[in-house]
Nucleic acid binder design. Sequence first.
DNA 1: AAACAAAACTAACACTCGTTAGTTTAAAAA
DNA 2: TTTTTAAACTAACGAGTGTTAGTTTTGTTT
Lengths: 192, 192
Amino acid sequence: MPVKVKRKEHINSAARNLFRERGYSATSMRDIASTVGIEVASLYNHIDSKESMLQQICFTMAEKFLAIIPLVKHLQERPEEQLKEAIRLHVLVITSHADESAVFVHEWKHLSEPHLSAFKKMRNNYEGFYRDLIRRGEELGLFKNIHEKFVMMVLFSSINWLYDYYKPNGKLNPSQISDIITDIFLNGIKNN
Amino acid sequence: MPVKVKRKEHINSAARNLFRERGYSATSMRDIASTVGIEVASLYNHIDSKESMLQQICFTMAEKFLAIIPLVKHLQERPEEQLKEAIRLHVLVITSHADESAVFVHEWKHLSEPHLSAFKKMRNNYEGFYRDLIRRGEELGLFKNIHEKFVMMVLFSSINWLYDYYKPNGKLNPSQISDIITDIFLNGIKNN
DNA sequence: AAACAAAACTAACACTCGTTAGTTTAAAAA
DNA sequence: TTTTTAAACTAACGAGTGTTAGTTTTGTTT
């Protein structure tokens, strides 16, 4: 593997980490450079611009999340089981990409057009998948009859902070985390 | 009421709104000034500094949330009922201060010391109250036995996005919102 | 009408921002 | 060893940052 790729990855990793810790706007290229240990101008031998790094993070993560959809749809099971599996995979993506997930959740608004619109579209697609799942569950009488958008947002908000909680050597591993979340959430919306 | 207070409130309101919409770092004093319709320098006849506005928002909200604790403790009821009431009040604060809540949740990290530490302390106190409530519920066998911190964070994350969902003339009013959240959450963690 | 205070203004300071140009050093290929 | 390429450097640009100084306008109080 050429040195260039290593450096590039080092820069992107520093950017991920700083974007997460301080936010995109409060992170300067000089911050990134000094973290990596080179001069500011040298960054531009490896990356295109500050925003290109944000774009890369946001869209790479969006694709990772969207890739969950066909995997789950393919199961052809009941909404409850599909939701369980979706949550499991979602938690897996977050816990294995904590920095990127934090940036994905909080910093996308600093994207400029047309990337901002493209991002929102992808996110809407992803959220729509969960809304459909929840609506189908409600129609089958499995879930309580609550406005699906509301339930979907409760679900996402219950999941999307996990990048903050999860520590690779912490008490709970990703599988245990998604079991607990699934348990709380599905029992919470279950019709009985 | 003197004109000065009105202007001051106008400035703070614009700041709240822009801090929420674009984030603290991405909001310039010139943005605020042009929203209000005056020159940048004129802002300083009314406010001390950019950060002082952030401080005011964060600490005012922290106090509003902390004020919930004695109200709930005074009830002397079971953890379940206390939790219900706490959620009800918390939702009420959020829905009646949407902009400030968003800033409170996301922008506190841009506080400088010693305010940052003071803020974290207040937040820890508040979170500790909920953890205690949850632990007591677990000890009484009312709730599932899950690490309280985890449950507490699920609860907060389920609640703290509401500034985004709630619209004064939307489908659900604050009371309905807290009923649904309480229903989902308490059924989710209930031992049965 | 005169005096005072509040709040607006213009102008600027010292600094940071992302980024580019041009140059030198280090490494790889010939 | 020479040539080429990648990656570092120094220096700087133009724009934007929060904030202050000093001045003028506006509105209120005597």
